[in-house]
Design a protein around this nucleic acid. Structure first.
Lengths: 191, 191
DNA sequence: CGGATCGTTGATCAACTTCAACGGTCGTGG
DNA sequence: CCACGACCGTTGAAGTTGATCAACGATCCG
C-alpha cells in the first residue's frame, strides 16, 4: 500500500528511499467497504486521506434534503474536508466509499510533525494543493461555460472509464442535474 | 508596498525580519491603471501576482463571445493562471485591473530560487494554496446548492462593500447570470 | 421468487436567457 | 465647463433549459 504513495511522492519531489520510508511511517492504513463512510456530517474531520486503491465520493445534504455529490477521488488523490481538518469546527460533509477502498490516513498533529521532520513533504503538499486548486478553478470555468449537456459530454470524453465505474444517479448528482435529465441527454445523443 | 506582503506572510509563518526582507527582494513592484491587463489570452503567463493594493478580475471569452468573469482578487490575494504559469503553454484567460492596482510580481525561475533559498516560503505557499483550494471547493458547493438569486444574496451578505466596489455587470458575470436578471432580482428584493 | 433499487418516459412548471428599447450618467474633447 | 457620445442599468415580452412529479420496466440481490 505504501508503494502507491511512494510512487506518487516521487512524481513531485526528489528524495531517497530511507527518507520516504520514514515519512511513510507517519501514516496508518485502513480499508473501507462499499458504501461505508470515511467521514460523516457532524463529526470532527480528524484525518486527511490518501486513496491508495478504490474510489470515494464527497457529498452533502442540500436544502431539499437530497445528497449532492461534489467530488470523486480515485487512486492517488487526497481527500478530506480541508476547512474542518485544519480548523476546529465539525464537518458538514460526508465522504463515502463508492467501491472497496484502501487509504493511508494521517491526523493533523502527525501531519504537522511530518512537515517539521521532513520538509520535502511541505513541498509535496504545496504542489498537490497547487494542482488541486488549478483543477478546481478549471472546474468552475466549465460550470460557467457549459450547459448541462455539454458538461456531461465533456466529462464523458475526459473520463470514459469513470462513466462506467460509478452509477448514473451519482454521476448526474456530480454534474449538477437530475437522473431524469441525464436519461434525456443520453437518448438525444444516441439518435 | 512590501509591508502588505510582509504582514501577510507573518500570518502564516514565523520568520525574522531580515529573512523576510531577503525574500521580498525576489519580487518586482508594478502598477497598473484601471482596465489595463496584467495578462492577456495567448500570452505566456510569466508572473505570479500578489495584489498589494487595488482589485483585479480574471475572465475568459466564452463560446458565445462574451467576457465571463471567474474571479476577483483584492489586497492580499495571489493571482495568475496557475496551469500556464507552471506549465509551458499559453494562457487562455485574461487578468485585468478593475481599479488602479499595485502588485508584487515574480516569475517562475525566481519563485523556484526563492523556494530553494527560503524554505519558509514553501510552507507559506502550501498554506495559501490549501486555503485557496478550500475556498474553491466551497464555491463549487454554492454553485450546486444555490439558485442564482440565492447566490447573489449570499455574496451580498458576505461581501457588502464589494458589491459597491465593482460595476454590476461584472458582478452578474461573476455570479453566472445576466445583468438583466440581476436587475430583476434587486427589484424583487426591494419590494 | 419477491422486493428494493435504478433507469426511463412523458407532462407540466419554474428559473433564467435573449432581444429590443429607453433613460440616466459618466468621462472626454472641444 | 459644457455638450456629446458611449456605456450602464432597467423594463417587458417571448423563448429555452432543466426541474419536478408520477408511473412503469428492468435488473440486481437476497
Amino acid at each position: 500500500m505504501l508503494d502507491t504513495f511512494r510512487a506518487h511522492v516521487l512524481k513531485y519531489v526528489t528524495v531517497d528511499e530511507a527518507t520516504i520510508a520514514a515519512a511513510g511511517s507517519f501514516f496508518q492504513v485502513k480499508k473501507f467497504r462499499k458504501k461505508e463512510n470515511l467521514l460523516s456530517e457532524g463529526q470532527l474531520a480528524r484525518y486527511n486521506y490518501f486513496i491508495a486503491a478504490g474510489c470515494v465520493r464527497k457529498y452533502f445534504i442540500n436544502n431539499k434534503g437530497q445528497e449532492q455529490t461534489t467530488d470523486f477521488a480515485i487512486e492517488n488523490w487526497w481527500m478530506t474536508d480541508l476547512a474542518a481538518f485544519w480548523g476546529q469546527g465539525k464537518t458538514e460533509i460526508n465522504i463515502q466509499a463508492v467501491e472497496p477502498t484502501t487509504v493511508l490516513m494521517i491526523d493533523r498533529q502527525n501531519l504537522q510533525r511530518l512537515f517539521a521532520a521532513h520538509p520535502f513533504m511541505e513541498s509535496y503538499f504545496r504542489q498537490i494543493y497547487q494542482k488541486a486548486y488549478a483543477a478546481a478553478e478549471n472546474r468552475i470555468r466549465y460550470l460557467y461555460e457549459f450547459s448541462r449537456e455539454e458538461l456531461y459530454l465533456h466529462f464523458y470524453r475526459q473520463f470514459p472509464e469513470f462513466t462506467r465505474r460509478v452509477p448514473q444517479y451519482l454521476l448526474a448528482s456530480y454534474l449538477g442535474f437530475t437522473p431524469e435529465y441525464l436519461s434525456e441527454i443520453k437518448r438525444k445523443l444516441e439518435s
